[in-house]
């Protein structure tokens, strides 16, 4: 990937979660989920964040999408600080896909309700709403009939498609995908990955792809950062990083990829 313009830069991001305990539920310690993490994403690039469970991947995703405030550090969007941004400012530029499509769709609201409210926020008029929702569903390979249905009527793969459509409804520049495949069956994983690749091209998306599956990362990402215990241990273009990893943790992750012998 050649050097293009910078879209998002994070500097020195840290986040700790308190552990409460004792009789009076006071703070007895803390978990450092992220320590001094810095990263850069260029426009149009796919940056993969990899690491074992509990390494801070999801915390990073939540800080970027504004769901969690960082303890320290700054985020810069296109050279401007994101400090004063309101929720809607962020949502217009950054959208997120969650890991478990069974948990990320509200079970009590129809797909139509859940899509329409975003489409409306994105500025569609009442007349455009329905068409826009149908178009979104079509772009993820579902028919407009889905609008009147509820999440429980869909399979895991279909739900993840709906979640992707919901994220795209805001026409974001940056899509954060927090392990979007790991709750799905292997065959479905391949379909969703293909869909993500296709959508990335159609909508010129920049993607922050969180994963622990290096095989997927290899086929999708341009650059990789490796997290361990909340800190960045290695960073680089996907080809060099995966073919000659320098850090022991990256090698351990690579060794953990199951290989089917020929």
């Amino acid at each position: 990937m050649s050097q293009t313009s910078l879209l998002l830069e994070g500097r020195g991001l840290s986040k700790a979660f308190p552990i409460e305990g004792g009789v009076f539920r006071h703070q007895v310690g803390s978990v450092q989920a992220l320590r001094d993490v810095s990263f850069r994403i260029s426009k149009g690039e796919t940056l993969a964040v990899v690491g074992g469970s509990g390494c801070g991947k999801s915390t990073l995703a939540r800080i970027i999408s504004g769901l969690l405030p960082p303890d320290a550090g700054t985020l810069q969007w296109d050279g401007q600080s994101m400090a004063g941004w309101r929720r809607l400012d962020r949502a217009r530029r950054i959208q997120m896909i969650f890991q478990d499509p069974f948990a990320s769709l509200n079970p009590k609201l129809s797909i139509g309700t859940q899509l329409r409210e975003v489409v409306r926020l994105a500025g569609a008029t009442a007349a455009e709403e329905r068409g826009r929702c149908e178009q979104l569903l079509k772009s993820v390979g579902l028919s407009g009939d889905a609008l009147s249905h509820y999440p429980f009527q869909f399979s895991g793969g279909q739900r993840q498609r709906i979640a992707i459509a919901r994220a795209l409804a805001m026409k974001p520049a940056l899509l954060i995908a927090d392990e979007p495949l790991s709750a799905l069956d292997v065959t479905i994983q391949a379909h969703i990955l293909e869909l993500l690749k296709e959508l990335k091209k159609t909508y010129a998306l920049t993607v922050l792809f969180i994963s622990h599956d290096l095989a997927v990362v290899d086929s999708f990402a341009d650059r990789v950062i490796v997290l361990q215990n909340g800190g960045v241990v290695e960073e680089g273009p996907v080809d060099t990083l995966l073919s000659c990893p320098r850090h022991a943790h990256t090698r351990a992750l690579l060794d953990a990829v199951p290989r089917i012998p020929d």
Binding site: R62, S65, G66, L67, R87, L88, R90, A91, R92, Q95, M96, F98, Q99, D100, A103, S104, L105, N106, P107, K108, L109, E117, V118, L121, A163, R166, A169, M170
Partner: peptide
């Protein structure tokens, strides 16, 4: 739950997140 996070990430207002998405459930 994730769907409440998702609702917030969508940029919905506080009232809509709690009043509709959370209240229903």
């Amino acid at each position: 739950q994730d769907y409440i996070r998702a609702a917030r990430a969508k940029g919905l207002s506080f009232r809509r997140v709690y009043g509709v998405h959370a209240a229903r459930n």
